[in-house]
Every structure is written in C-alpha cells, then in structure tokens.
C-alpha cells in the first residue's frame, strides 16, 4: 500500500492544466506500462492494482517478491497523466511530456540535446537547485572529449586511461565522488550460463 502526498501537481499546461496527481494516475500509468510491454518486466510481480481513494494505491502481488520495492523506485516506474496519452491518440512518441517531476522539458532534438527548466512549484522544495538542465548527447567518445575539453559540458564519462590524458590538458580537472557513479551504475553479479553449475537452468532459477 502506498499513500500519496497531497499537493503533488502536474505541470500547468494543457491538457493537464496543473491538476493534482492522484492514485488513478499511478494505476493508469502502470497498467499502460504493462500493456505496452517494453518495460512490463518491472511490474512482473503485480497481480492487481487498485486506487483505493485519491491518495491510496494498493498492490496485490502474485507471490512474495523481494524486488518489488526496488521496482517501484526503478527509473521506468514513472507516473504520467492519462490526458497526455489521450491527447496524443495513445502515442507519446513526440510528447507531450507533462509530468509532476522537478523538471519541465523545453527542447529535445534526438541524439543531440535535451533541455529542461526547473519546475518552480515542485512539491519537494527547495529542489531542484539549478535553473536549467541541459543533457548534451554525443554519439561518439571523441566528440564527448572535445565537449569536455572546451568546457561545454561539466562531466565526462570515461576511464582511467582517458582521465590521465585529460589531466594533461585540463589542469583544473576535478574527479567527482566515485560513490555517485558507483551508486548510479549499481553492482551486479552476472552468471556465466556456459559453465557448471549455473548452466543448469534450475540453479539459475534458485
């Protein structure tokens, strides 16, 4: 069971017009997530979802699932308003992107740039601190290095070897806290299904 905060509002633009996020938005979004299949595996344990009232959502699971709460925090478990889906005839390929999150999308060019500005009435104040967030997308590492060297981006996703090279040309280079990245990437244990005992599907299921 989840109890929603009061006063969480969507962006104040049509067709949603800044209305409050309610339990029905959660069940609608998750049902669409299941129906569209691409990210349905996140909710594989869910048997039933109910909006008990506007601020209460109850999930019934098919079986005990230790990963369920992790799934609720998964980047794919997002809540959107159904009005946007209806206004786009069921296909949000070109938006509109109308959420209740900390950022408002202002520009998107595929594989180039995403621009967002802070949502001034975000329910979780004082976040976000920055006025805008620009995600610069590059399709190759060399362009990314150039963008970093010339100061057009604040970060660079790289390895130790490239970092050493950057030290030579960027004297004020700072290394971010690696915990941030470790947490972002997560820790995973992978099985090699070509070797015993995990080549036995029953072992992997256990």
């Amino acid at each position: 069971m989840f109890n929603l905060h009061r006063g969480v509002k969507f962006e104040n633009v049509a067709p949603v017009n800044g209305r409050e996020l309610v339990a029905g938005d959660v069940t609608y979004s998750f049902q669409r997530m299941i129906d569209e299949k691409a990210n349905a595996s996140v909710l594989k344990a869910v048997e039933k979802m109910e909006a008990v009232d506007d601020y209460t959502v109850r999930f019934t699971l098919k079986n005990p699932d230790a990963d369920f709460l992790w799934s609720m925090g998964d980047p794919r478990s997002l809540v959107l308003p159904k009005e946007t889906v209806e206004s786009a005839n069921g296909d949000l390929t070109n938006g509109p992107v109308v959420g209740s999150g900390p950022w408002i999308m202002t520009e998107w060019v595929h594989n180039q740039i995403l621009k967002l500005r802070r949502k001034p009435d975000y329910f979780l104040q004082p976040f976000p601190y920055a006025d805008e967030f620009h995600m610069v997308t590059v399709t190759d590492a060399q362009t990314g290095q150039a963008a970093f060297r010339t100061g057009q981006v604040l970060n660079n996703l790289t390895n130790d070897q490239i970092t050493d090279l950057l030290r030579q040309s960027v004297p004020d280079l700072q290394l971010a806290d690696e915990k941030l990245l470790g947490a972002a990437a997560g820790d995973r244990l992978w099985m090699n299904p070509t070797k015993s005992p995990v080549n036995d599907v029953r072992v992997r299921q256990v």
């Binding site: 609720m72 999150g101 408002i104």
Partner: peptide
C-alpha cells in the same frame, strides 16, 4: 523521465 515522478 526527468519530467516525471516515481512513487519512491
């Protein structure tokens, strides 16, 4: 996703 929210 940065424009949306999650439950937790």
């Amino acid at each position: 996703g940065m424009a949306y929210n999650k439950l937790i």
